[in-house]
Design a binder for these strands. Structure first.
Length: 477
RNA sequence: CGGGGCGUAGCGCAGCUUGGUUAGCGCGCACGGUUUGGGUCCGUGAGGCCGUCGGUUCAAAUCCGACCGCCCCGACCA
């Protein structure tokens, strides 16, 4: 594996683009910055969708769908919100062959239109909480794009909730942050740092934004999911009011939270290697691929039959495919599935049938060390276990990488050095101006103020003033 | 919008400096055979308005100009 910490960022881009291409995840579209997600890439997104959706349902959320078009005036109702998003809006000015009276914005996010609907739906404290999620596409006209990480249009889910009290809304915000962190760690095997966004990095219109930050293989930070406490800002802008138990008119407290197709990019950049994609077993659309091997036509039937039997025995336990393609050598197939990141490969040939075993190869351990013989009788017991072992192994590897590239620093000089090869962790009491200075001088930003704090007091790494919190600093995507 | 690179077959590229046969190579694709335990090998074949427009010239992929587009690095980015 090439070391991207010391190399140019062009090299990392090249490596990343190659994996996306080799693994057959996505393609460029005729429209600049818009990505075509190919079938295999989409199955990966479906896995992410399913795992997240399961968690949303388990926390009492339901799905709904809101329109793609939002009247421009809706965005203008929340001043910070429109200010934050206006540079990146796609605006529809014509429809039905005529100029529209009011331009329509292609949603960059849906707080406004959902806020408008919630105002109609919420009258009483009995209507609360409203816990709705939508799976949708959004458009943000970014100047510079990157497959999966920042595309003009992307798929995501956005949850929007309304609550009767501030405490409930704050609790919801943190609960969903926790859902994201849990998903990232347990399913995507990506270690993340949950924390609060700094003032300058928070969502336009939020009271507080929370994030899970992951470290990519070049030491840069990727915001992998966000959860916002919106206070009463949007409720006031859209008149989301209700009568409480004592017949007093109150503004609701709202939250929003989202995770996007960017997660696919995060998986690539966290686990991928020179050979291609490496997928965590829990997310892999295909967890095990069986490659049949035969030399003579006379062996073909028996080998395929054995392959089908193995597939059938495993099918109820995991996602398994048998590669029956004609005209490709086993070596070619190995390579093909390795590029696609399939965690386990089972090879079955005449020798294996004779010895009543199968050759199993781990994607996360290339070469001979990743190969082992498993008795045919033990596959139901051992293959799922192996997948769990891989899931754990790649997570631990990612944790080890990240932790060895986070430096605790207590001087600005050390911070500058640390963010060149990873994250820095230091006391922070800076304001927006200090953050701007930090970015100018180091290209790094406050990635988050972690939920887990060491306690005690220190001196701000930039200004030297007293500080009560530590922050994570790094360069971001 | 600034800096750099590049537009030639589906993909990756050579040819351009010094204009001149029918524009080439690798991969991929189609067909036939051969092979299959780490990307088999051989043969045959299909596939091109050389980014667009204009200029110079007897003659332009090649020289000149303009434009368009793409990639990378910045700026921008909850």
């Amino acid at each position: 594996m090439a070391d991207f910490l010391t190399s140019q960022s062009e090299d990392f881009s090249k490596w990343y683009n190659e994996i996306v291409q080799k693994a057959d995840l996505a393609d460029y579209s005729p429209v600049r910055g818009c990505m075509v997600i190919k079938p295999y890439g989409y199955t990966l997104w479906e896995r992410i969708h399913d795992e997240l959706d399961r968690r949303f349902k388990a926390t009492g959320h339901v799905n709904a769908y809101f329109p793609l078009f939002i009247p421009m005036s809706f965005l203008e109702k929340e001043s910070e919100h429109v200010e934050g998003f206006s540079p990146e809006l796609a605006v529809v000015t014509h429809g039905g062959g005529a100029e529209l009276e009011e331009p329509l914005v292609v949603r960059p996010t849906s707080e406004t239109i959902i806020g408008h609907m919630y105002a109609k739906w919420i009258q009483s404290y009995r209507d609360l909480p409203v816990l709705i999620n939508q799976w949708a596409n959004v458009v943000r006209w970014e100047l510079r794009t990157r497959l999966f990480l920042r595309t003009t249009e992307f798929l995501w889910q956005e949850g929007h909730t309304a609550h009767a009290t501030r405490a409930e809304a704050v609790e919801e915000t943190l609960r969903m942050l926790d859902v994201y962190a849990d998903f990232a760690m347990k399913e995507a095997a990506i270690p993340v740092l949950p924390g609060r966004k700094s003032e300058s990095e928070k969502f336009a219109g939020a009271v507080a934004s929370y994030t899970i930050e992951a470290m990519m293989k070049d030491g840069k930070a990727l915001q992998a999911g966000t959860s916002h406490f919106l206070g009463q800002n949007f409720a006031k802008a859209f008149d989301i009011q209700f009568l409480d138990e004592s017949n007093v008119l109150q503004y609701a407290w709202t939250t929003s939270w989202g995770m996007s197709t960017r997660m696919v990019g995060a998986v690539v950049m966290t686990h991928g290697d020179d050979q291609g994609l490496v997928l965590p077993p829990h997310l892999a659309p295909i967890q095990v691929v069986i490659v049949p091997i035969w030399r003579k036509d006379s062996e073909r039937a028996a080998v395929l039959d054995a392959g089908r039997q193995v597939k059938q025995r495993l099918a109820s336990l995991l996602r398994v495919e048998l590669d029956e393609r004609e005209g490709y050598s086993p070596g070619w197939k190995y390579n093909d599935w390795e590029m696609r990141g399939v965690p386990l490969r089972i090879e079955i040939g005449p020798r294996d049938i004779e010895n009543q075993n199968v050759m199993v190869a781990r994607r996360d351990t290339p070469g001979r060390e990743g190969k082992m013989l498993v008795p045919m009788s033990a596959i139901e017991a051992q293959i799922p276990e192996l997948l769990e072992a891989i899931q754990l192994a790649i997570y631990n590897k990612a944790v080890a990488f990240r932790d060895s590239h986070i430096a605790d620093v207590d001087s600005y000089e050390q911070l500058k050095h640390a963010v060149e090869v990873g994250f820095a962790r230091a006391w922070w009491a800076g304001n927006i101006e200090d953050e701007a200075r930090l970015k100018d001088e180091t290209k790094a930003t406050v990635r988050c103020i972690p939920i887990e704090q060491p306690g005690g007091k220190g001196r701000c790494v930039l200004t030297g003033e007293p500080a009560t919190e530590v922050a994570i600093f790094g360069k971001a995507y």
